[in-house]
């Protein structure tokens, strides 16, 4: 298994964890949702006690209360929001770039035979490249500015979205395309009414995987060399043994990841309305 796919799996596991438990839990259990908070709360309390008694030194792991106050302080000084915004910008830029490349390549390979022959082999090769192994090369090529960070995110985004999109395009129901022909739909109408709705669910699955990788790639990229952003904040804190700030940075990453995943899930639900509505009726 390549580093790339391993990374993808880890990332999607991380971002999907919340979604999976929420989805798989039967309805009647969700009323007792309160119970699910008990064990985390106990762990948190234990952590606080261990910190307060000095069993857990501050240089190893700061107390939850310290982390909370660090978060408040960092927000007040504007350090955290600024870092968050910059990281978000990098992620968005990389995501946009990767998505555009994946869609263009995916459509070319998924629609035309010649396009498939030309585009698919390099994309398959790209799939086997260990994404984070490229970091040293990227630094050599692009220096330590924004470019290598954005490109690393973009590269991570391209592959899962591309693969899902191509599979979806190849799987479009031929009978429905024939209906489009028999109704004399224009090329535009064909895409709008048949092809895009048909590939959307699978494409969104790919996009969610891509999103997971995007955050992972960003975290790695920001560790290397950064003068701003969440990664910089974390690295800086490491130099001063500020474990509370490190945890705040990690939490910020986690929240961003969960948030973007939630957005895509909402899109997915909208796109699949026709499949879910009226089933229980």
């Amino acid at each position: 298994m390549s580093a790339h796919t391993a990374g993808a799996a880890a990332a999607s596991r991380a971002t999907n964890a919340a979604a999976a438990t929420e989805a798989s839990r039967p309805r009647r259990v969700s009323r007792r949702i309160g119970w699910r908070w008990v064990s985390p709360a106990v762990l948190l309390a234990l952590w606080q006690v261990l910190s307060a008694t000095g069993v857990l030194p501050e240089q190893t792991l700061a107390a939850p209360t310290d982390i909370l106050s660090a978060a408040v302080d960092l927000t007040k000084t504007g350090e955290l929001p600024t870092a968050l915004l910059i990281s978000l910008q990098r992620a968005a830029l990389g995501l946009l770039l990767g998505t555009v490349v994946a869609i263009v390549a995916g459509v070319i390979a998924g629609v035309s035979r010649v396009g498939d022959v030309v585009v698919d082999p390099p994309m398959q090769m790209l799939r086997t490249v260990p994404l984070f192994g490229l970091v040293p090369l990227f630094i050599l090529w692009f220096g330590i500015g924004e470019t290598p960070k954005v490109l690393l995110v973009a590269l991570g985004v391209v592959v899962p979205l591309y693969l899902n999109l191509v599979a979806a395009l190849r799987g479009v129901d031929r009978e429905l395309l024939e209906v489009a022909d028999s109704l004399r739909l224009s090329r535009r109408e064909r895409w709008r009414h048949v092809v895009i709705p048909a590939v959307l669910p699978e494409a969104l699955v790919g996009f969610r995987q891509s999103l997971g990788i995007a955050w992972l790639a960003l975290i790695v990229a920001e560790q290397i060399a950064a003068s701003e952003g969440l990664g910089y904040m974390i690295n800086n804190a490491r130099d001063f043994l500020q474990t509370d700030v490190i945890i705040v940075g990690l939490l910020a990453y986690a929240i961003l990841g969960l948030l973007t995943d939630a957005i895509v899930r909402v899109l997915e639900r909208r796109a699949l309305r026709y499949r879910d509505e009226g089933v229980l009726a």
């Binding site: 009978e175 429905l176 024939e178 209906v179 489009a180 028999s182 109704l183 004399r184 739909l185 224009s186 109408e189 009414h193 048949v194 709705p197 048909a198 026709y274 499949r275």
Partner: peptide
């Protein structure tokens, strides 16, 4: 106009939109 053996409606469009397609 063709009616096929199976209805071949677009599952993601409601009945109205299917009828008015194109």
């Amino acid at each position: 106009a063709v009616v096929f053996q199976d209805p071949r409606l677009l599952p993601w469009r409601d009945a109205r939109a299917n009828v008015g397609l194109g």
